[in-house]
């Protein structure tokens, strides 16, 4: 599987990561379920991860892969706290619809 670097140009990976990131952005914009908004954030983090790994493989530098490791750690911590917040929202409002959280304005 080593020859992938010579066969596939780096630009293809950039385009793939951009498409995945934009799908995540669209999901955050159009969905109202807080859980799905969270999943789209995970999608965006993974798009960044594949970009990091592609650059690190094409340049022969291991620092990019260590950065991906840290991103995964931060994502795990973020999900733990975020899901706790969502459970609290559900307890207080009986739904996870972000459109019903408009009382926070007042």
């Amino acid at each position: 599987m080593v020859e992938i670097i010579t066969k596939i140009p780096l630009e293809y990976y950039i385009i793939l990561a951009s498409v995945l990131f934009c799908i995540g952005v669209i999901g955050v914009l159009i969905r109202k379920n807080a859980l799905i908004i969270f999943m789209c954030i995970e999608l965006m983090l993974n798009a960044v991860n594949i970009l990091f790994i592609a650059f690190s493989a094409y340049r022969g530098d291991a620092s990019g892969q260590v950065f991906v490791f840290f991103i995964m750690a931060v994502a795990a911590a973020e999900v733990a706290v975020g899901l706790a917040i969502i459970v609290m929202i559900y307890r207080n409002t009986r739904s996870v619809d972000v459109g019903e959280l408009n009382k926070i304005r007042y």
Binding site: M1, I4, E42, I50, I53, Q65, V68, M72, A75, A76
Partner: peptide, 18 residues
């Protein structure tokens, strides 16, 4: 994709963690 890019460690971590 990670396995194709020869990043085996991160591939396994991706499966386990995510």
């Amino acid at each position: 994709h990670y396995i194709l890019l020869n990043a085996q460690f991160l591939a396994i971590v991706n499966i386990i963690v995510y």
